[in-house]
Design a protein around this nucleic acid. Sequence first.
DNA 1: ATGAAAGCGCTAACAT
DNA 2: ATGTTAGCGCTTTCAT
Lengths: 340, 340
Amino acid sequence: MGRRRPGTPTLEEVAARAGVGRGTVSRVINNAAGVKESTRRTVQRAIEELGYVPNLAARSLAGRRADAVALVMTEPDWRQFAEPFFSEIVSSLGDALSDTGMQLMLTLVRSDAERQRFLEYARGGRVDGVLLMSVHAGDPLPDMLAEARLPTVLLGRRSGDEYVSYVDVDNVGGARSAVSHLLERGRRAIATITGPADMYVTQCRLRGYQEALALAGLEGEQTLVAEGDFTTESGRRAMAALLRRHPEIDGVLAASDTTAAGALETLHSAGRRVPEDVAVIGFDDFPLAQRTTPRLTTVRQPIEAMGRAMVRLLLEEMEEGAVAWRHVILRTELMVREST
Amino acid sequence: MGRRRPGTPTLEEVAARAGVGRGTVSRVINNAAGVKESTRRTVQRAIEELGYVPNLAARSLAGRRADAVALVMTEPDWRQFAEPFFSEIVSSLGDALSDTGMQLMLTLVRSDAERQRFLEYARGGRVDGVLLMSVHAGDPLPDMLAEARLPTVLLGRRSGDEYVSYVDVDNVGGARSAVSHLLERGRRAIATITGPADMYVTQCRLRGYQEALALAGLEGEQTLVAEGDFTTESGRRAMAALLRRHPEIDGVLAASDTTAAGALETLHSAGRRVPEDVAVIGFDDFPLAQRTTPRLTTVRQPIEAMGRAMVRLLLEEMEEGAVAWRHVILRTELMVREST
DNA sequence: ATGAAAGCGCTAACAT
DNA sequence: ATGTTAGCGCTTTCAT
């Protein structure tokens, strides 16, 4: 195939035009020290006049770096994509990366074939590191990347003994404090709508939920637990099922912002008043959902900090050549807004 | 910075191990014809044993192609991201590209700085072509890419005389047939919730809406038009405003699936029955929304075909070196499901 | 401070 | 059918 872009000036032509060596031009475009101010300007003018743009393939080859990192979504059905959580994370990663001069590229891995393709792409040196979102328990991609010694950082972990570098939040603690909060306010029939059962984050939050109940001397009933998948629709469905089984429910811990929104809709339709009859706590509470269905209490995840931490870990791994894994667990915070 | 991955075997080492020349190895990894089956296997064994992976930077440099295309979102506030339409398009692009062996990478351009960064990235040869989604009227990125002679295909156009290659649908016709359909069923007070006013797609659909009314001898009132931004929330808000101004509304044309969903929610809350009191038609109707709020009639966009067409145009431009622009306008289809 | 030169790992054209 | 060779455009010593 004849994919090519002819007529692109090279560094050599710039050097010729500026009457300097190629090394000097290289130093100029990389802002390296040790170039006389006057020559720097001469070179810069030549660059402008020729409309020179560095060839990144050549730079990669010579410099052995890609100046790009991939953010991979392995979500098999990626309705997750639509989560405000997801876009907030992407935003914060973009911000954190913008200082480093690296490009962030999103990649979707929906099948084994795509997983393989991405692996070749990454091992081929097109990215310097990989960030992974929403990893499910059995996902082999982190291991494949680790084996290839590619700097890799997960958002969340696949299990309690995850080794690959990750940034996670204290999900057990977050869930526990949310449920404890409800119990202190006198709620007794507290249900929970979880995320996908094969995600560690789900298990952690469930444990927090159960621990809080146990602390209060209550024993969690299996029928007060409904599985969702972080979407609004799953929140609606799960809430409806819970109400059918337990009309007496007076508190709910939801897996996410959007799940909580779905649950609230169903509660409203069923004529329940919120929070008078039923209090709902979810993880995070984004502006859009707030406008629709304001809640008073949420478990807040420090999304900005999560993005920054992921980038920091990745840079550290890149720096030293992926010889060690690092783990960061950030605190969640129970956020209570006073009703107005 | 010490970003590097040492110990990666090269093609040369593979050649040595297999006892062949580098050319032969190159032919094998590229599945080129003209290699004896026995040597091919010898080489393949050497590749396996060494765990060889081609260096893509070197390949790019020598072959002058990146084997990757970027899908760029320029949406300044990218709640669009959450649209099923968006994920469907990405899916169809992924499918269409998977045959070509090219990587699809999503890129977000949220600011001028990011626009510039992406431009350097693309001009630097990291992608062979660029796909652009949801371009607003004044977006300069398509022109910048065109000037750099980068194969580029837009989804939708910035105006009626767009020149850069694009794939669009017949928005005027789609909107017109939807409104005509409503008129034929006896509706008279038909409102519309549009997309952002600075998008050509919005103007086209509005024109279709007005044309249908004019054909029926009605004159469209300005107050029957409300601006949204494709989101569910904007659908709710706009519908509420419309109902306030025109309680007699008996038909609505919505900008999208999600906008329609929002409008339907508001209608339900207001005690209106759908479609007995008010009929709602939107562009597209995705499974998720269907479950929540089934509608009977939609304007269907051929999303699969749109993705395929975009990839085809891009490949053609790449083939010939971006010497011509191509435009494709796909038909929309009014889809009437019989109520059950 | 700057120029010259040696690669980086691959593809493709040219030999054989 | 396969080996050889000349780049691709840049970064990075090493001289000067």
